[in-house]
Nucleic acid binder design. Structure first.
Lengths: 96, 96
DNA sequence: TTAAGCGTTAATTAATACTTTACACTCAAT
DNA sequence: ATTGAGTGTAAAGTATTAATTAACGCTTAA
């Protein structure tokens, strides 16, 4: 099976997980990140690192996997948009 | 459920996928990467980027997901070893 | 003994995450 | 109307990391 298309930036999803009424400033403090860094993530201007995924997991009680996986899907989708040299499948070669 | 522990570096796994008798030089050519870059990956001295994952997928006929996911698990595991400030779970806070 | 293949290093370039500082904006409360 | 909190964003600096090419020394097979 192939993959979801146009996967969301993890920041968009994180938005939904943010506790009601909690400010970005408070959340950044809770996570031990700067306000700027968290703001960038929430506004899709920075990605989730493994370290950040672990912080989110602790904070929200999710798996770290969820966040790192989301970032991976997003990265893949973005990368797929860019040009890349044609690569011959090994199967094609073996069949030849 | 939690996650596999000590997940392999993607390079180790890639080793197993390398077609019998194919040289590193040939594989690097097929992937459009330099020999140095592929060698580093295979010897666990560099990671798999989204771009590289897409190349491997094309070449080997796997999903790109497989490779990016493996890298994510590896990164997570490595990051988990490093010290990180204690983070209070939101659940704890809500319970308070 | 040559040539191929390999691992590795070095030097360089390019992204990208993170920090702090700073500025301008909105909005609610006084 | 002015303050203050919260926000988004930009700039400047640090650090990490993936990629390149060039080069070296090693091993192995022809």
């Amino acid at each position: 099976m192939s993959r979801m298309h146009n996967p969301p930036h993890p920041g968009e999803v994180l938005r939904e997980w943010m506790p009601e009424g909690m400010t970005v400033t408070e959340a950044a403090d809770a996570l031990g990140l700067s306000r700027v860094t968290l703001s960038k993530i929430l506004n899709t201007h920075a990605g989730i690192t493994a370290d950040t995924a672990l912080r989110l997991a602790k904070w929200l009680g999710t798996s770290a996997d969820l966040w790192i996986g989301m970032q991976g899907q997003y990265d893949l989708w973005q990368a797929a948009k860019k040009p890349r040299p044609k690569i011959r499948s090994i199967a094609t070669k073996l069949a030849a």
